[in-house]
Every structure is written in structure tokens, then in C-alpha cells.
Design a protein around this nucleic acid. Structure first.
Lengths: 226, 226
DNA sequence: TTATTATATTAGGTCATCCTTATAATATCA
DNA sequence: TGATATTATAAGGATGACCTAATATAATAA
């Protein structure tokens, strides 16, 4: 029987999206939420009001949305489920890591807490998903995040890729095609003028990354040894 | 992003339900479908019309519903996903087999074909789910079913439990508590008068099963050696 | 064959989630 | 400060999946 959930997968997507956007900018503009979810701002606004009624978010008109403590807990729960599924899909089922994001996104809304925790046990409580992003704890805490956005590095600076913010499958695929994945060492060789794209050395190759893309790649910056 | 499916999980539940009820009686009365799904007959009727428009079922008023070839393929796809998940939840995650039914039911509607087949590979293509029910093939064929309903056995007749029709978690739990699970040998010791319940010997114990329940237990009947 | 029961349909509603179009309010920049 | 751009809200609709109550029709059993 199709069970009635006390709130639908849509609401979960909103909370997750707000949480993901929140550590780029807080408060999160409603417009960004709408864009990311591919819906109209009117609909997003509507839903955010409903989420506010249920005390999951706080909306400051013309500023943006914040998660409440409860909302953050819920959002982290969703993210936990998604990232655990990503681990399983990649490591268990052998699905290429650049594809698992969307599959996991479907599964995350259909996963009972009992299944989530059994899955975590089974996977031996991984610290991160295949993209390198930390997996929230069972009680809804997000582990502290390290690293700086790749886009902040200046020419000559080096680092190790920590994680890729999985905004979309296209982004992940784009990076994967350029050999950029967690653990790889990179060096910024050049930045084009006028806030232009970065040239990045990965292994023996040099790739050019737009700023938008590089903003979603987090690196552990190496001590500058020039 | 929440993807738009060309039809929702509800429709999948209808098809699955019709398929499950079909080998008890064909055509399947709309009332049975409604009962099983816990919805009104009006709603069921409505949805069945929609499914008929899409050529998944054929409805004969006052008789019941049949699946079309296409509908059966779809239904078997859903059942395949569910039963594969049941295998994983039981054998992989160690969730007790009497609990996995509902969890798998949630997951089945959120599972991409790519994931389904990767899962099947991972599980090494099991023939049956933990309840003993056959898993349809990737192209939507349901393997032939053996066995007779336990309720058909007469006192003195013996057999081996092949599978339990997973109608509900309660049914499975009820049977599990009485030691009735696939592979067990049983003997009918008595049938109470007036179409009453059966007494079943399992191991050293004797349990009494209502006819409704016993109708969902399929057995491989042993040659009568009295 | 008729009365009873089972099944189907019609009409009118609810709820969540989305939409477009139009207007109002605020922010920001020149 | 005033003009422009951004953000919010209001109004009206659409859709899918459900509901109840009332009525119509077919099946079945006395």
C-alpha cells in the first residue's frame, strides 16, 4: 500500500536544496531555490510559506530563507539517506560515480529510517559519499567541512581535491571527464584576465574550468612552496 | 530534482495489485483491488479507467479487470524491483524477512531500471524473494509457479512450504510466529468441521490456521504415503 | 421473475503541488 | 533621491489522486 507520509518528497527536496545552498550564502534567496529545483519562484515561495508554518524554515522577505534547527535536522536526514545510497550504488553496485546522484535522489525519499541505519551499518559507516561530501550523522548533524573553493586559489597554488558539490549530474560528469575527482592533486597554472576561467593542472594534463564550476570544487590547499 | 515520471507510483501499485490478485481469480473484481489498496471502489474504478485508456488493463463491467500484455509486463517490472529489494534488505542488510515487504514497496517505485539490473547482478540473480516468490525476469516475464494452496490439503497430507503470498506484513508476521516459512515441512493433521481452520504440524508443534491465511501459503505436496 | 445484493457511475469536494499573469513592495545603483 | 531591477504576493487555473453520497445497472438467489 502506498503509505501516506506526513509530508511529501517535494518538501524534502526543498529542505535539502536550502541546506545545500546555505553554505554558499546564508540566507538563501528564494530565487536560487526555485532555480535549483526548476520551478517558478511563485511555487517556491508558496512552499516556503508552508515550510515556515511547520517551523522548518524562517523566511525574511527580500533576504532569503534560513533553516531552523528542526529544518536542518530534517534536511541532514535527507542528505544522509542520499549519500549513503550513493555509496551503495557506487561501491556496492558498481554504478559509475558520476551517475549515482540522480538515482540516489529518487531513493532517498522512499527510505525508512530502519533501512537507512541498516544500510549505514552495512556500508560500515562511511565518512563521505563518492563525491567526497560528508555524510550527516544519524541524529542529523553535519560534520564540519574543510577546504576552500578551488576558485579561490591563485596561479601557482596547489591542493588536493576534497569534494565536489554535487549540484547536478552534468557538473559531476564535466569534472570527471577532466580527471577531477576526490583525492587528485591539482595546481592552478593560470587565471585568465577579467575574472576569467582557471587553468588547472591535473596529472599531466591541463584543463580550463569556468569560475562557476570551480566554485563547486573544494580543495585542501597545500602550503605554498614556491 | 524530483523527476516527472510518466505515471506515478499509484498506477504501479494498481498494476502490481491486479497482477497479484490475478492468479487467485481472473478477472480481478474491482472491489478486491480497492480493498487491497485500502481505497474506495469509486477511486479504484476511476484509476482503472485511466489505466484502460493507457492500454494497461481491460475492464469488463460487473466482471473485473484483466492486465493487457503491456500491463503485465509493467506489473512484473514492479514486482521484480520489489522482490530484488526484499532480497537485499533481508540478505544484505539483515532486516528480518517479515519486515522487508513494506520497505521494499516504498523503494520499488523509486528505482531506475539501471539500478534494478545492477542490483540483480549484485545479488547474483536470485530466483525467489525471501518469501519464496519467484522474481520476474528483466524483460517482464513471470516464471511459472508451482505448488498448491495449503488450504487445499486434506488431513494426513504433507508437503513443503514453497512460498508465502506476501499480502501484508501482518500475514507474514502471523505465519512467521508459527514457524511457517519457505522450506519447512508441514502436515495437515485436522480440518475443523464446516470449512473450519486447519491444524498444521510444523516441526514438533501444531498450529491452527484460518482458511484465509492458509490460502496464501503455497506448498509442494508430497506423495501421499499413508 | 422478482427481490436483493453487488457493482458502476455521476456529481461535487479536498489537498498538495505545480502553473501563468499581473501587481505591489523593496533594494540597489547611478 | 529617483529609476531600474529584484522579490513578493494575489488571483485564477490545472492535475493527480483521493473522498462521500446518491443513483443506476447488472448479477444472483429465492
Amino acid at each position: 500500500m502506498v503509505q501516506k507520509r506526513f509530508f511529501g518528497s517535494s518538501a524534502e527536496m526543498y529542505l535539502k536544496t536550502i541546506a545545500e545552498l546555505a553554505h554558499e550564502r546564508e540566507p538563501v534567496p528564494v530565487t536560487s531555490v526555485a532555480d535549483r529545483l526548476g520551478i517558478s519562484t511563485v511555487s517556491a515561495s508558496e512552499m516556503i510559506h508552508r515550510l515556515e508554518d511547520r517551523k522548518f524554515v524562517k523566511h525574511r522577505p527580500y533576504k532569503g530563507v534560513y533553516l531552523t534547527a528542526e529544518g536542518r535536522r530534517k534536511a541532514n536526514g535527507v542528505i544522509r539517506r542520499q549519500r549513503l545510497w550513493e555509496c551503495f550504488l557506487t561501491n556496492g553496485l558498481g554504478i559509475p560515480w558520476e551517475h549515482v546522484h540522480d538515482f540516489a535522489c529518487q531513493l532517498e525519499h522512499a527510505t525508512d529510517p530502519v533501512v537507512t541505519e541498516a544500510l549505514a551499518d552495512y556500508l560500515e559507516h562511511p565518512a563521505t559519499c563518492p563525491h567526497g561530501n560528508p555524510i550527516p550523522t544519524a541524529d542529523g548533524e553535519m560534520p564540519a567541512l574543510e577546504g576552500v573553493p578551488l576558485v579561490n586559489l591563485m596561479p601557482g597554488e596547489k591542493g588536493v581535491i576534497l569534494r565536489i558539490h554535487p549540484v547536478s549530474e552534468e557538473l559531476v560528469k564535466h569534472l570527471d571527464e577532466r580527471g577531477i575527482s576526490p583525492g587528485r592533486e591539482i595546481e592552478v597554472t593560470e587565471i585568465a584576465p577579467f575574472n576569467g576561467p582557471q587553468s588547472i593542472e591535473v596529472g599531466d594534463e591541463i584543463h580550463v574550468l569556468g569560475r562557476e564550476v570551480a566554485a563547486h570544487v573544494m580543495v585542501q590547499q597545500a602550503a605554498d612552496t614556491r
